[in-house]
């Protein structure tokens, strides 16, 4: 049997279907393994400078409350910043509390020499001050800066699609802070060890 053009043409549909089939198998595999999510949104901020956003007021005017958050705060940072976007009304944020608490206490202990000290900042999304204060109480007041985004406008500038989300920002004198990692969903120890810890080791 000689291969003619007819043979090639007749084989094309089967080849196309095979290609699609392999793709589907890999997608299903990815779905099960958790590294393929058709609903994922990759926001484009990673690798870019911190976006401009409206200045956010602090939780309250009392001196014990951490200061608010502005774009300028990122200008002269000397250490990496982990920015949490959260709200007391969101269930995953409540689930995130123990980890944040643990992280804050471990950061308070003097660090080993090769890891850069990390600061935790917060952006509270569309929340009531009293409920937010309650959440902070439970989390052990982890943030050294906290901006209240009552209207949710600053969160949009950060490309936030839902709470909680986390950004890791590295000091960069030229651009005034550069985003190196962006996570959606609650931050867990596994995610922290996989994505954030390696980044901290690269800082001189």
């Amino acid at each position: 049997m000689t291969l003619t053009r007819r043979h090639l043409l007749a084989a094309l549909p089967a080849l196309g279907a095979a290609g699609l089939g392999v793709g589907f198998v890999r997608m299903l595999h990815g779905l099960n393994q958790g590294h393929f999510d058709p609903r994922a949104i990759n926001t484009p901020l990673t690798g870019r400078p911190v976006p401009d956003f409206p200045a956010l007021p602090p939780l309250s005017d009392t001196p014990s409350s951490p200061p608010g958050l502005t774009r300028g705060d990122f200008q002269n940072i000397k250490q990496p910043i982990l920015l949490f976007i959260w709200a007391s009304w969101c269930l995953p944020c409540v689930e995130e509390i123990p980890f944040i608490r643990h992280l804050a206490t471990s950061l308070a202990i003097p660090q080993s020499s090769h890891t850069a000290p990390l600061a935790l900042w917060g952006l509270c999304y569309k929340d009531h001050p009293t409920q937010a204060a309650h959440w902070l109480e439970q989390a052990g007041h982890p943030f050294t800066r906290l901006g209240m985004d009552r209207e949710g406008q600053a969160a949009i500038d950060w490309g936030v699609t839902g709470v909680p989300e986390t950004f890791l920002i590295m000091p960069d004198p030229q651009t005034g802070g550069r985003i190196v990692w962006h996570g959606t969903g609650s931050l867990t120890d596994t995610l922290y060890q996989a994505h954030i810890h390696p980044q901290l080791e690269t800082v001189p």
């Binding site: 007819r6 007749a10 084989a11 549909p13 089967a14 279907a17 095979a18 089939g21 589907f24 198998v25």
Partner: peptide, 19 residues
Amino acid sequence: LGLLGLYGGGSLLLFAIRA
């Protein structure tokens, strides 16, 4: 996917051979 491969893929293969 297995069933799809069996019926869809199998028949397209048959098509490629016999058509």
